[in-house]
Amino acid sequence: MKVTAIPPEHASDPQAPAFAAKLDAETKIEPKDWMPDGYRKTLIRQISQHAHSELVGMLPERNWLTRAPSLRRKLQLLAKIQDEAGHALYLYSAAETLGTSRAEMLDALHEGRAKYAHIFNYPALTWADIGIIGWLVDGAAIINQIMLCRCSYGPYARAMERICREESFHQRQGFEIMVSLSRGTAEQRRMAQDALYRWWWPALMMFGPHDGKSTNSAQSSAWKIKRQSNDELRQQFIDMTVPQADFLKLTVPDPELRWNEARGHYDFGPIDFDELMRVVAGDGPCNRERLGARVKAHDDGAWVREAAMAHAVKRQARAKAA
């Protein structure tokens, strides 16, 4: 059966044709517009997961703030982490326009009911990992996010445009770190190579399962939430990244990786999607640590949030009385 923009349960809804017409005309859907329940639910899930990823994404980097090798690197990393917090906030706001609340989303994350990008459950063991995270993890995220700038839901698309603009510096700061290390001492080159060995495959998994194995893809495409398939995006990432690895004179850990002249793309070896599923299900190297750190930060901040609110209420009451 062909998946269409109007699911069967809305077939006789008088508002449905206008929704479908907007999608056809590439007109954005806005918060107060009618939309199928599934469209709303899919977006809330996807945007909140995206926001959670930005939030949890700060954690692997934070240990390196006090260990950055120079003041320049420390300032860059601070700015990048601050951007990630900002990106989480833009995305939470976009999700809230669909009728969920910030509190609901955070509770879902903290209680383990919501997912975030599996990649942040890997440890950042050395300084080279900070370079790799910017170069590969942000690089992969940007490819996905450029696609999402064309997503049919207005607030999500607008948040993506802003995030893409800001995130290009993240990828460059990562690559700059990789360039320094790859031109450095033998030990630094080893460190860079080791980081690439560990992060290459998890980075490829960021695009999700192969087309056809991805459960929500067909409906998301019909709704123009997703504009390109997982495999297309992954191929685009590989084609972009392999020449950059060559420039760094680093070896990509895939013996089957080679340029295919006929396809005009790189061929690559099989991806271990069982690993992806294991990490998503909670059994990655750092799942417990990441969620634990997030919950602790939230709980430790509770008194500040309450005090700020109590202060605001008191001041308001005083202003009224005066």
Binding site: E96, R102, A159, A308, R315
Partner: peptide
């Protein structure tokens, strides 16, 4: 440009 949560106008 967007929205945010805050306890009062100043914050």
């Amino acid at each position: 440009v967007g929205s945010l949560h805050a306890p009062d106008a100043e914050m």
